[in-house]
Computed example of a mutant assay.
Amino acid sequence: MTTTAHTSPATVSNIGALIGTGVVAAVTASAATMAVAAAGHAAGISLDISGAPIPVTGFGVLTAVFSLIGVVIAAVLSRFARRPQRTFIRTTVVLTVLSLVPDVIVDAGTATKALLMLTHLVAAAIMIPALARRLAA
């Protein structure tokens, strides 16, 4: 006996909309974190960690990677969570707070640490609401 998974067109459409929104938000968040890093650097804040400089584009690349992981989390929760929006918001807020821990302990100046944390918060402020709006309450 075999079983076939039946996915309704509404489910596929919702996932597609979620992914589309997520990709646009990821691009926006990546650009925003690069802008924050560039502005901080222009204001005299070092982008060096342990003596090695972080390129401004590195902020964008890492933001894109982790933002797309967030899209995957949202897609999985939309399929399996009883309350996807609430679960997503709680999960991503906790992950955002945890993402600040390495910034606190990294070998860098105080201003650099603050700038790194700001980029995490900027990305989260863009990604979390954009994806949460697409999830069922």
Rank of each mutant, 00 (worst) to 15 (best):
I19N: 00
H41A: 14
S46D: 13
R90L: 14
A31R: 02
A52Q: 15
A81C: 07
A74T: 08
V65F: 14
G51F: 05
L95M: 14
P84Q: 07
A81D: 00
I73V: 15
P84I: 03
R90I: 15
T63D: 03
T21E: 03
I19T: 12
V65M: 15
F88P: 01
V27L: 15
R83C: 00
G40M: 02
P84G: 04
M34I: 13
A38R: 02
L62D: 08
V93Y: 10
A43R: 02
T57I: 11
A42V: 01
L95S: 11
G20V: 09
V71D: 03
G40E: 01
G40T: 00
A32Y: 06
V71A: 05
A35F: 11
A74R: 04
L77A: 01
V24T: 14
A42C: 10
A43W: 01
I49M: 10
V24H: 02
G20C: 07
V24Q: 10
T96C: 12
V94L: 14
G22A: 10
T21L: 10
V71F: 02
A64I: 10
G44L: 05
A52R: 13
R79I: 15
P55M: 04
H41N: 14
R83Y: 01
I19K: 08
I19W: 06
P55E: 09
G40A: 06
V27A: 13
V23S: 09
T21M: 11
R82N: 09
T28E: 08
M34R: 07
A39P: 00
A43K: 01
T63V: 05
V24S: 08
V23L: 15
P53W: 04
T33Y: 05
L95Q: 06
P53N: 02
A75C: 08
G70H: 02
S46H: 14
A35P: 01
A26D: 08
V94M: 12
